[in-house]
């Protein structure tokens, strides 16, 4: 597949106008994500209220795929419980590595716009990085890397 097919309107738009941009002042959890080979580098902050993601913010320097994935992720997990968000991490990872059939049941909603990345091995890491970083933030570890 052409990578051009991946650069759909929704991804381009989130890249241009990322949601939840900026770190939270009152974060309870933080993590940094880095793809050393391509240079994607993001910081993620969360505010958990009990078990619920009350607020989430990110910033960084990353390619469109990574930045849009992070932006759409923050929208998707805001208000979710930690367990539900972790479930999405797993499903997103499975989708982008070709292990999840998006025709079947899942909780990814509009995030299926990234399903095509499974056919672009060099870009899978870009899409997954924010999700690894979210997982690291939940786990209380400071850094995530897809290398």
């Amino acid at each position: 597949m052409d990578s051009r097919q991946l650069y759909q309107e929704m991804i381009l738009e989130h890249n241009k106008k990322p949601r939840n941009w900026g770190m939270l002042g009152d974060a309870t959890h933080k993590a940094e994500g880095l793809n050393p080979l391509c240079g994607d580098h993001i910081h993620l902050s969360l505010k958990l209220n009990g078990d619920q993601v009350e607020a989430v913010g990110f910033e960084g320097e990353a390619c469109a795929i990574c930045k849009a994935s992070a932006s759409m992720m923050t929208v998707a997990v805001k208000g979710k419980s930690k367990a539900d968000a972790e479930q999405m991490v797993q499903e997103f990872r499975d989708m982008t590595t070709g292990k999840l059939d998006t025709a079947g049941p899942h909780h990814l909603g509009r995030l299926t716009v990234f399903s095509g990345v499974s056919e672009l091995p060099t870009r899978v890491k870009c899409a997954i990085l924010p999700w690894h970083t979210l997982h690291a933030a939940f786990a209380g570890s400071d850094t995530a890397s897809t290398e």
Binding site: S3, R4, Y7, G39, D40, C63, R123
Partner: peptide, 13 residues
């Protein structure tokens, strides 16, 4: 406004 990684992928197309 375009990250080099995106440039590389799209040029490859």
């Amino acid at each position: 406004g375009v990250h080099p990684h995106d440039v590389g992928s799209l040029l490859n197309d």
